[in-house]
């Protein structure tokens, strides 16, 4: 799977929600695009990741 331009090997079948938790993302502070489409937050637990997937994860930090 490609995540933010880097190849990541999925060891097991995983939902997007579990993957994000493993990678220590705070889901309240991110946005995720999968294969060119925004993934609604409410469906993170239903999206099952595949080797062919390309993810872009944007992590927002505070300040403005």
């Amino acid at each position: 799977m490609k995540v933010n331009g880097s190849i990541i090997v999925l060891r097991e079948k995983q939902s997007l929600l579990d993957f994000l938790a493993d990678q220590k993302y705070d889901i309240k502070k991110i946005a995720v695009e999968r294969n060119g489409e925004i993934v609604p937050r409410s469906s993170y637990d239903r999206v099952v990741l595949k080797d062919e997937d390309t993810l872009e994860i944007v992590n927002f930090v505070g300040g403005g």
Binding site: K28, K29, I30, A31, I38, P40, R41, V58, F60, V61, G62, G63, G64
Partner: peptide, 18 residues
């Protein structure tokens, strides 16, 4: 998007793109 809080930034970006 010109908010201060990361949660507010994320919310606007997610909902607007959807």
């Amino acid at each position: 998007e010109a908010f201060d809080q990361p949660e507010a930034k994320s919310l606007l970006v997610n909902v607007a793109l959807e």
